[in-house]
Design a binder for these strands. Sequence first.
DNA 1: CACGACTCCTGCTGGC
DNA 2: TGCCAGCAGGAGTCGT
Length: 277
Amino acid sequence: MPELPEVEVCRRGLAPELEGALIEGVKIRAPKLRHEIPPTLSTLLPGCRIVAVRRRGKYLLIDCHRAEVQGSLIIHLGMSGNLRFVPLDQPVGKHDHFELVLSRFILRLSDPRRFGAVLWQAGPPALAESHPALASQGIEPLTEAFTADWLYRALAKRSGPIKPTLMDAHLVVGIGNIYASESLFRAGISPLRAANRIGRVRYEVLVPAIRSTLADAIAAGGSSIRDYVHSDGGAGCFQIQAGVYDRAGQPCLRCGRAVRQIRQAGRSTYYCPGCQH
DNA sequence: CACGACTCCTGCTGGC
DNA sequence: TGCCAGCAGGAGTCGT
């Protein structure tokens, strides 16, 4: 589920229901996802009110508070995780690992591949980003600070191909495998080109391409937030019309040449050899 | 430091 | 139909 747009859509769906809600109970069923889910959550969280639901990169932050407890629940959906509101009597599924019991429903985390994470950072909301998992996160691509100038300088010493480099969350957060390919297609830049051999002018094209790709995906998902959060909405409705992703061998929508699939850093990359250089 | 390979886990798909 | 290899939208660690 998880690139920045999906997590942001999830956040927007959860926030109105969660903010102000009282946590009545917690259930931890998985001994371990990527990390062990802190057992102390079982005693810390009940009685807490949810103050805010935020996002940092692909992490969701749920700020919790009661008289003597303050902290942020930090949730990563990994590759296959999802969070859903389900009825209080909903049977537990095979991959349901964690849940918050609220007054009228349950917020349940399901994650078959268990690459996700549930973490806790004690203290006021501002401290959440000091958690080790978040402290090294890169710039948010949808903020004004993310400019062509910034990216050009940040990649000045990166000689690896631009596509896997864009996916490095220590530089820029939220660009996963799909949107890395899609952004480069929109910008007309080959995924194979060395990051530091792309001219500054082309970053003026790439940065808006990244922004529009992510924003379009959020908009596409936003229209189906209700379905996603309240039922078992499929992942399909979250994806933008892909220009190249998962279209190997099919004609490029712009020039008609066959879309090519290659492997970079262990991940599939899709691009158009006619449009991208 | 930067980079690629490897790793965690389960489920689905496509080829035989 | 059944089996199995390969692959899946992430990210940490390790060796070079």
